Amino acid sequence: MAGAKTTPGDERNFLVTNFVKSVYEVDPDWFVMENVPRITSMEDGKVLEYLLDQFAEIGYETEWAVLNAADYGVPQRRRRAFFVGRKSGEGFEFPEGSFRESKDQQTLFADREPPRTVRDAFGDLPSLEPGEEKTAYAADPDGEYQTAMRAGGAGLRNHRAPNHGETVTERIERTAPGEKIPYDSWSQKRRLEFGEPAPTLLAGPRPTYHFAHPTDDRGLSVRERARLQSFPDDYEFRGPIAKQRQMTGNAVPPLLARAVADAIAEQTVPA
């Protein structure tokens, strides 16, 4: 989707074609490609048809599916299109999710575990004032997810709140958890709620915020964003804060990536 709002001749419009070229040149046994869900319906499905034809021409049987990260234990509803190509053998079967997307799905997906929530992601992290940074956890890990996030033993890093002005702080303060923050031109700004997974984390070029903390009157720290993506705490983000936000927002959630990788490993026949 890079360059979608630019001129048709913009070279960024051909990034997906360049991916196909890279697969051809590297010639791996398998490949995985991730993109936004709309790639499957662009131009009435012609882009999808073109992609699958291109992969077939270079020798790959390719399966695709739109996966939701929340189904795989990520505390975030994040739908992305995945393409998995195999050089030889039968087609690929995508892994089944084992978590529900919402607490409301108890009847429809009774055999799945409850969704991981913002509380699961943030529960052991200390409260922050705007602009404040802390390097010590607020509590011992509570539950499987927090324990897994802290398994590397590296301590707490990247936990600094955006330095909001008084006007921004007041807007957040007036917003209830789960509600949109009152902006005329920022419809995606929202205050998170502890009891559900977060909406899709965005990248954005600004160093401020898209989502506000459920109880602190501020935007999220980079570590909180990383927790929503399932990056463990021993993964340190570096560089300007705006770039760290872009990295966390653009990334494939590691738990979802692992689910796809495990499925490939299970379906790979040893030589």
Rank of each mutant, 00 (worst) to 15 (best):
R112M: 02
D53S: 15
N163F: 11
S98E: 12
D44H: 13
D120V: 04
A161W: 03
G85A: 05
S230D: 02
Y72N: 04
E236G: 11
R223E: 00
E90H: 15
A139K: 15
A198P: 06
D233F: 05
I181L: 02
S98V: 14
P8M: 01
A265M: 06
P75L: 03
A4D: 10
F19T: 04
Q244L: 04
E11N: 13
F82S: 11
V260N: 01
R157S: 08
H159D: 00
D233W: 10
E61Q: 15
T268D: 08
E193P: 07
G9W: 07
D104W: 10
E11V: 14
A136V: 14
P240T: 07
A212N: 05
E129K: 15
D10E: 08
A81W: 01
S102W: 03
G239S: 07
L15Y: 12
V84E: 02
G155M: 09
E224L: 11
R78D: 01
D233T: 07
Q244K: 09
P207D: 09
D184H: 15
P126N: 09
L228F: 06
A110K: 14
T40K: 13
P253L: 01
N35V: 04
F211I: 11
A70M: 01
V74Q: 02
R227V: 03
P130T: 02
N163C: 10
E166S: 15
D217V: 08
A203F: 12
V23M: 07
P114R: 10
A2Q: 09
R225N: 09
F211E: 02
T167F: 08
I264P: 13
R218S: 08
F109S: 04
Q54I: 05
V32A: 08
R157F: 05
T17Y: 09
V36E: 01
R160G: 06
R79K: 15
A2L: 11
G178T: 03
T135H: 13
V168L: 13
T117E: 02
A69N: 04
T40A: 15
Q76L: 07
V36D: 00
D104E: 12
A263E: 06
G45V: 10
A4S: 15
R12V: 01
S41L: 06
L67W: 02
T175M: 03
L67P: 05
P37Q: 05
R160Q: 12
T169S: 07
H164S: 02
S221D: 04
G97S: 07
M33P: 03
R258L: 08
Q244W: 04
R119I: 02
P130N: 04
G239W: 03
V260R: 00
S127Q: 12
W64Y: 15
R227M: 03
H210I: 12
N158G: 00
F31A: 00
Q246H: 08
V260S: 00
R38H: 12
G131N: 13
T208V: 14
K189M: 05
I181W: 00
P126K: 08
T107D: 12
A148T: 09
V269A: 09
D233C: 06
T6F: 00
